[in-house]
């Protein structure tokens, strides 16, 4: 269990709470509960003290999953809460966070372009957001471990 109790409001939602270096609290959730977890952090620590900092998608090829991490900076508590969830690698879909935080825009567009995760409800997803056109036209998602890039 992590030293910080910043993840405490998410205890009921979480499948498990772990710790990541350096001092981050990792809350493992079902994909449909990520938005609710973010909302709970906002309610507990105040709207102006919590923001979505980074979205990290990781291809876990051997497990057949894509891991989605939402790094939420709770800066009034000087720590980060990582909302972590796993989605199917074959058909990676997850609900967009745009309804609750516009900060998700850049991260979701990037993750779609590089990893192929579809954020349902985000109308701005497009290929070639970052990836060069010739790579995008081949349907390659470069950060997939078997992309051949």
């Amino acid at each position: 269990m992590p030293e910080s109790d910043v993840g405490e409001p998410l205890k009921e939602l979480a499948k498990e709470i772990q710790e990541m270096k350096v001092g981050r609290v990792v809350v493992i959730l079902d994909p449909e509960k990520v938005e609710e977890a973010f909302r709970k952090l906002q309610e507990r620590y105040g709207y102006l003290n919590v923001y979505l900092s980074t979205i990290v998608g990781t291809d876990l090829k051997s497990e057949g999953k894509i891991r989605m991490d939402y790094y939420v900076n709770v800066f009034s508590e000087s720590t980060y809460v990582v909302l972590r969830t796993f989605i199917e690698r074959d058909d990676p879909k997850i609900k967009t966070m745009l309804n609750i935080s516009k900060a998700a825009f850049s991260g979701e567009c990037e993750t779609y372009d590089l990893l192929g995760v579809k954020f349902e409800g985000n109308p701005y997803l497009k290929r070639s957001f970052f990836v060069p056109k010739d790579v995008a036209e081949k349907g390659v998602f470069p950060l997939r471990k078997d992309s051949g890039v």
């Binding site: 709207y47 102006l48 919590v50 923001y51 979505l52 900092s53 935080s101 516009k102 900060a103 998700a104 825009f105 850049s106």
Partner: peptide
């Protein structure tokens, strides 16, 4: 405004 700063990250 600060609210937009937080919302848009």
């Amino acid at each position: 405004p600060p609210r937009d700063i937080i919302n848009y990250g």
